[in-house]
Amino acid sequence: MAKADVKMPDDFLLKLSKLGDKTDEIIPKVLESGGEVVVETVKSNLQGTIGSGTKEKSRSTGELVDSLGVSPAKLDRNGNFNVKVGFKEPRRNGESNAKIANIIEYGKSGQPPKPFLKPARRTSRKACIEAMKQRFDEEVGKI
Rank of each mutant, 00 (worst) to 15 (best):
M1E: 05
A2V: 08
K7F: 13
M8W: 10
D10I: 12
D10W: 08
D10E: 14
F12V: 15
L13Y: 14
L14Q: 14
K15A: 14
K15N: 10
L16I: 11
S17L: 13
S17W: 08
K18M: 13
K22V: 09
T23E: 09
D24C: 05
D24E: 13
E25K: 14
E25S: 15
I27L: 15
P28I: 07
P28F: 05
K29G: 06
V30S: 03
L31D: 02
L31Q: 04
E32G: 08
E32C: 07
S33D: 14
G34E: 05
G35D: 10
V39S: 03
E40L: 11
V42Y: 08
K43R: 15
S44Q: 12
S44W: 08
L46T: 06
L46D: 04
Q47R: 15
G48M: 10
I50N: 00
G51Y: 04
G51P: 06
S52L: 08
S52W: 09
G53D: 05
K55D: 10
K55E: 12
K55A: 11
E56W: 07
K57W: 00
K57L: 01
S58R: 01
T61H: 00
E63Y: 03
V65A: 11
S67R: 02
S67C: 01
L68M: 03
G69L: 02
G69E: 06
V70E: 04
V70N: 01
V70D: 02
A73L: 06
K74C: 00
K74M: 11
L75V: 05
D76V: 04
G79K: 01
G79T: 01
N80C: 03
N80T: 09
V83E: 07
K84H: 10
K84I: 12
V85N: 00
G86I: 01
P90R: 02
P90L: 08
G94V: 04
G94K: 09
E95K: 15
N97P: 12
K99P: 05
I100M: 11
I100R: 06
A101V: 11
N102Q: 14
I103P: 01
I104A: 09
I104Q: 07
I104Y: 05
Y106S: 09
G107Q: 06
S109P: 01
G110Q: 02
G110A: 05
G110W: 02
Q111S: 11
Q111G: 02
K114S: 03
P115F: 00
P115L: 01
L117K: 03
K118N: 07
P119K: 02
I129T: 13
A131I: 06
A131M: 04
K133W: 03
K133A: 10
Q134H: 08
R135Y: 00
F136V: 02
F136A: 12
E138I: 09
E138W: 08
E138P: 03
V140Q: 05
V140T: 02
G141L: 08
G141T: 02
K142D: 11
I143R: 05
